[in-house]
């Protein structure tokens, strides 16, 4: 065999074999890192293709995931204006699948379902049966809640979704303990607004658990902070502690404000 004549082919095979091995390992490493950073949103399958249609699927395959997600989101807005709530839901699902790290998709998507869809169904004049209207209302509130829960699971570093979940539990489901828990999660996220720290206390008071609420306010009061900074809202904390200590008849020696 004339090795000299085949030297190019041999070189090619050697280069590609060496590079191929390194390449696969490198790509696996990048993929692992992206999974750690929670960048993996979707897998390309027939379901996705059916939902997106041919044009948008081509856009997705050409690397324009963000633009495709934006177009899907525009459809959410159109469907919301037309009150096509099931379409809103499926489009919200699709856009959050494509870009799970864009918080407003979760936040606004949940709001469309839990607030807009539920109120629309509650006031549905075509449905004379009030029980059925209430059932529909509850259905959309729960769908909104599911969006928030999935959003929070995908974005544990976002206070916005936890805050929205707290608001939903408070105002729509009147589950104040769950609301307190959600607000506590929101407040614990670095960079969350400090006023959220008081919300678990307010919610526990609404739930009728004054003792637990007092503990929340006391914990805030004893944090090593400058109490004069207005952002911390210590005037409100003090007001609540005083009120709860009086209400719970806490002995003077055990009070924060004897």
């Amino acid at each position: 065999m004339n090795w000299y004549r085949h030297r190019t082919a041999i070189w090619l095979a050697l280069i590609l074999a060496a590079w191929g091995t390194l390449k696969v390992c490198w790509e696996q490493g990048i993929e692992r890192r992206e999974a750690e950073l929670r960048f993996h949103g979707y897998t390309i399958n027939r379901d996705l293709r059916d939902q997106l249609g041919q044009g948008m699927m081509l856009g997705l395959l050409s690397g324009f995931r963000g633009v495709v997600a934006d177009f899907v989101w525009l459809m959410v807005t159109n469907s919301w204006q037309d009150k096509q709530w099931f379409r809103v839901k499926s489009m919200v699902d699709l856009s959050t699948t494509l870009q799970p790290r864009f918080i407003p998709f979760w936040d606004l998507g949940g709001w469309h379902l839990a607030w807009n869809a539920s109120v629309d169904r509650r006031n549905n004049r075509d449905e004379p049966n009030e029980l059925r209207r209430l059932k529909e209302e509850r259905y959309w509130i729960n769908e909104g809640k599911k969006i928030y829960e999935r959003g929070a699971e995908n974005n544990p570093d976002s206070f916005e979704i936890w805050r929205s979940l707290g608001l939903l539990n408070d105002q729509k489901l009147h589950d104040y303990r769950a609301a307190a828990e959600a607000y506590a999660h929101a407040a614990a996220v670095p960079g969350a607004p400090v006023f959220l720290e008081r919300f678990p206390g307010y919610m526990l008071e609404k739930a009728g658990d004054d003792a637990a609420a007092l503990e929340v306010y006391k914990r805030l009061w004893y944090l090593p902070r400058d109490h004069k900074v207005p952002q911390f809202g210590y005037d409100k904390v003090e007001e609540r502690i005083r009120a709860l200590e009086a209400k719970l008849k806490v002995p003077r020696e055990k009070r924060v404000f004897p």
Partner: peptide, 27 residues
């Protein structure tokens, strides 16, 4: 295919940047 074709999905991190995710410079 895995040996020869580049993984173009690794550039999808661009979408994450625009979506507001913190993409470390090391990545």
């Amino acid at each position: 295919l895995s040996f020869l074709v580049p993984d173009m999905n690794i550039y999808n991190v661009i979408d994450e940047i625009i979506a507001g995710s913190a993409v470390p410079w090391s990545h």
